[in-house]
């Protein structure tokens, strides 16, 4: 498995392989090809950051540029999904959720339940999230918590090229609506990815590092921040177990609890805002179900409860980094010492 490709290429490959396998798969979104109706090139952009580049020509008629009407085309994708197709719609930035939320919140997510189990809505909504590109408050947010809160949705947040491909293939094959969150800063990340088709199941967290002292639970880009902190801490004799959730809905409760039962300490790292978040949810889960195993308080390393700032001086403070994770880990370790 020596071939290395980027996170972005892995997503493109997953789309191409699934579109080849299943002709009910199609792509719709703003500038997913680019150039519709314009005098220049077709497939001029292939997505605003080029993730879907090339698919327009490989799959004629199945890569559809949409007008700037998030409510309209996301809703159309939902409608098409109820009719036996497998749309992959692209919401350029997750911040634009405000423009289309009804079709996800009230339509796609609720059809199956409201209709007594008779509807199947195999929709994938790919969307970019995350701070770090100086893109300011309306192009940088992380809304994983919002999606995770909504029953009926599945929420995927891959951290590596391998997971991006396997989880996207799973998302496309899945018969429930899936929100597939891609961090802009991960697109260039290289990693080993099999050329063959494979799917990574939902609800199965990935152990990226074994350790006995502290459990670091995280997902998405923060996985790399957690690993950096864990490597630094290892040199100081603190062994962190790093757990990448991969999906926040379904949530792999068993793996989180299994690890905390072993280490007795938990630090949750989440790029999202802290109120009612994945971080608080996991903290509550562990406090409820693994309280006896805890040797110290649970720590959360998250963004502050603010919008994402523009200035680099502020944005760098906003994003959780390895130093903050290391400080949190030391805090939970020290808490044990003072109690002992």
């Amino acid at each position: 498995m020596a071939r290395k490709i980027s996170y972005q290429q892995a997503i493109n490959e997953a789309l191409a392989q699934e579109m080849r396998r299943d002709e009910s798969v199609f792509i719709i979104g703003e500038d997913v090809a680019g150039g519709a109706g314009a005098p220049g090139e077709d497939d001029a952009w292939g997505g605003v950051l080029g993730v879907t580049k090339g698919l327009y020509h490989q799959f004629p008629g199945r890569v559809l540029d949409a007008p700037l009407s998030e409510l309209g085309y996301v809703g159309a994708a939902v409608g098409a999904a109820t009719q036996g197709l497998r749309p992959v719609c692209e919401l350029m930035f997750v911040d634009f959720a405000g423009c289309c939320l009804d079709q996800i919140l009230n339509q796609a997510a609720k059809f199956r339940y409201m209709f007594g189990g008779k509807a199947v809505t195999p929709l994938v909504m790919r969307t970019m999230y995350g701070a770090g590109l100086r893109a300011a408050a309306q192009h940088s947010q992380m809304l994983t918590s919002l999606w995770t809160h909504i029953p009926g949705l599945k929420v995927v947040c891959p951290s590596s090229p391998y997971d991006a491909k396997g989880l996207l293939i799973q998302a496309i094959r899945d018969n429930d609506p899936v929100i597939f969150c891609e961090h802009k800063l991960l697109y260039s990340l290289q990693g080993e990815v099999p050329e063959e088709v494979y799917s990574v199941p939902f609800g199965e967290a990935n152990y990226l590092r074994d350790g006995d002292d502290v459990t670091l639970v995280t997902y998405g880009r923060m996985v790399h921040v957690a690993l950096e902190a864990a490597n630094n801490l290892a040199r100081q004799g603190i062994d962190c177990e790093v757990l990448d959730l991969r999906t926040t809905s379904p949530l792999d409760e068993d793996s989180i609890l299994e690890s905390v039962e072993k280490t007795g300490r938990l630090v949750v790292i989440d790029e999202a805002n802290p109120r009612c978040s994945v971080a608080t949810d996991i903290s509550a889960l562990v406090a409820q179900k693994a309280f006896a195993a805890l040797k110290g308080p649970i720590e959360m390393v998250t963004a502050p409860h603010t919008p994402v700032p523009f200035s680099d001086a502020l944005e760098d403070l906003y994003i959780p980094d390895a130093a903050k994770v290391e400080a949190a880990v030391r805090k939970v370790i020290d808490a044990k010492r003072s109690a002992a």
Binding site: Y162, G166, P194, E196, Y198, V200, P201, N206
Partner: peptide
């Protein structure tokens, strides 16, 4: 049998076919 060995085996088992 490390977690990595298990993960590698799962990566194999996930491949289509």
């Amino acid at each position: 049998v490390t977690r990595q060995m298990l993960e590698d085996m799962l990566k194999f088992k996930r491949l289509e076919g």
